[in-house]
Write a protein that binds this DNA or RNA. Sequence first.
RNA 1: UCCGCCCUGGUGUAAUGGCAGCACGCCGGCCUUUGGAGCCGUGCAGUAUAGGUUCGAAUCCUAUGGGCGGAG
Length: 398
Amino acid sequence: MRVLVAMSGGVDSAVAAARAVDAGHEVVGVHLALSRMPGTLRTGSRGCCTIEDSRDAHRVAGMLGIPFYVWDFSERFKEDIVDDFIAEYAAGRTPNPCMRCNERIKFAALLDRALALGFDRIATGHYAEVIRDAEGRPELHRGEDLLKDQSYVLGVLTGDQLEHCYFPIGATASKAEVRAEAAERGFPVANKPDSYDICFIPDGDTKAWLSDKISMRPGLIKDEEGAVLGEHDGAMTYTIGQRKGLGIEKPAADGRPRFVTGLDPESNTVTVGSREDLTVHHLTGIRTSWSGPAPSDIGDTAETGIDCEVQIRAHADPVPARAWLGEVIAEVPAHEADVPAARPAGQLLHVDVAEALSGVAPGQTMVIYRGTRVLGQATIDVTAKDRLGEGAIATATV
RNA sequence: UCCGCCCUGGUGUAAUGGCAGCACGCCGGCCUUUGGAGCCGUGCAGUAUAGGUUCGAAUCCUAUGGGCGGAG
């Protein structure tokens, strides 16, 4: 097969490329330039898309003897990821730009160009597996190393996209093995640190980065009863579940930490409460997508939903859940028409969970699993304290 | 003006004559392809002020300043 390997400059995609070559494929390496001003990206191996990362990827491609290109996706990246990120925060939500990038850039813009150029697959260094079912259709499964499993961030991929995905290191037992293999192959990136934080925010200070891109107005911080506890300088930079940086003078009467439990862009109010005030048992998602065909047995009531597990962060424990379909939102509701990045169209996904979830922010992604398999995902839009369904949720996992 | 009670890190408190401790906060580290969370740290930071008693004072005494309540 003709394989285009997306080489971030890290150890994982380097080994992925090497394995694709070893497997006998015709391999071309490509590094994505995502910023028009690379100097503004973070350096020191913290991200996936700095100048150094590009050079590292180039060196590895050279060692493998494969063609290597740098493709400029900075325009798409700015429109689809950075601008969306800003608009989401301005609307009081908390976006996940890495998943957005997978959805719109790596497995969309990049994939489209690869297919147009005659490639059969794009390969990446993700820890996840594509397994074919009896009919030969692709299923997305967790990576073998559950500590490094990255199936969550690939939950946005549809069956059509998975059809062309190739994850050469997904079945590797541990990251240590990948690093050891990189060292054996003499790759200079063998000991490069894992990437973390948002790649387009140079110093990792999201609040400061946002502050000159969205209008910041001082407002009040209140407790669950409405008593004023302090002030903030812009509600939109906070997120549900946040504990640090609240700047409240007095500790709570019970001496326990306080967390952001709500933020309202209209009244510009941040609400704080206890850890218990953060717990939810129901999620409503929007922009639902399926990792392949939608489950045939999913209904539109809690009783006719499917038993599954839901995961609300990249490395959170999956929680037993019941998922069912809701209405289809065709257009932006009138009352939200003037809100930036108002709720997008799509089918609602309702999820009741067997165990309380904590710190769940609208805008984040819930990924639905059954065992190791990713079923689909939705963007969290609303959360609720109590379940909607009556019955117990099956807690046995596959 | 008089009487009584009170004053300990940024905040809330513990220690009633014997090593000023705890919590929240802040800072740093770990973890992490998102936000957060979580975990770790001999990390930061305090006895309102001035005297006195005592081997030793946050603690007892005196004065001053500040706060609260009551007679006015």
